[in-house]
């Protein structure tokens, strides 16, 4: 039953003894949820490993069309955002909620930069005829390559690489957007005065989520961009 009482300025639900007890349960729950996230991406990583073993040349050929500089910038942006979310938590602990909200705002901004760069990467590929799987337009792509004087595509199943590219980066992108919404929600609550030095569980949890999203990208970047 979710009645609660206030201890040390924190709403503690009836079934918990004290603030610490409630927080430790929440932390455990968040980490368990992160395990499910990692296992979900794990399926994609296993599939990637399997097909990379079968068709190494096709993966190398696909990675040609990914600009490692853009991927690298995005990696830096996300690593920096992991830092700013920690700054946000630091200010929560110090009870400086406006600064905490500002740090979360910068984190969201990093997410926006990441997504904008991804948008340009995606649209450029669509322009070249690079769609996932069966939809990949090999004739159009080779036409573009011939005009630019670059070597033509040899693999007939290049779409499979881009099937992975769009599935992995797409699912990751969805998580970035989710993370940004959650960060926005934390920012709003911080400004509304929901949190104090004893209670900022939501920021903590969303912070962990954001780190995991960041971590997944750190694996995706070499696997997709640098594999050639």
């Amino acid at each position: 039953m979710s009645t609660s009482r206030v201890i040390d300025g924190v709403n503690v639900q009836t079934h918990y003894r004290d603030v610490e007890h409630q927080l430790s349960a929440a932390k455990q729950g968040i980490w368990l949820f992160m395990v499910t996230e990692i296992l979900m991406f794990g399926g994609l990583f296993v599939g990637y490993a399997l097909y990379h073993m079968r068709y190494p040349e096709m993966f190398a050929e696909g990675a040609r069309f990914l600009d490692w500089r853009l991927g690298f910038i995005n990696t830096l942006v996300l690593i920096f955002s992991s830092f700013t979310v920690v700054v946000g938590i630091y200010y929560c602990q110090a009870n400086q909620m406006k600064k905490a909200a500002a740090a979360l705002g910068v984190t969201i901004l990093c997410g926006v930069i990441f997504m904008v760069i991804k948008y340009f990467e995606y649209t450029h590929k669509f322009h070249m005829g690079i769609y996932p799987g069966n939809m990949l337009d090999l004739a159009k792509l080779n036409h573009h390559l011939a005009e630019a004087g670059e070597p033509l595509i040899k693999s007939t199943n290049l779409g499979l690489y881009f099937g992975f590219y769009y599935c992995m980066s797409g699912l990751h992108g969805i998580h970035v957007i989710l993370g940004m919404s959650l960060l926005g929600w934390c920012m709003f609550r911080a400004l509304r005065g929901d949190f104090n030095a004893n209670y900022y569980t939501a920021v903590d949890g969303v912070g962990i989520f954001w780190h995991i999203v960041d971590l997944v990208w750190i694996f995706l970047f070499p696997l997709l961009y640098l594999v050639g």
């Binding site: 769609y131 799987g133 199943n157 779409g159 499979l160 099937g163």
Partner: peptide
Amino acid sequence: FGVGIFDPKLG
């Protein structure tokens, strides 16, 4: 989207 991961046509 026909991503091809389970589709033998694309390997």
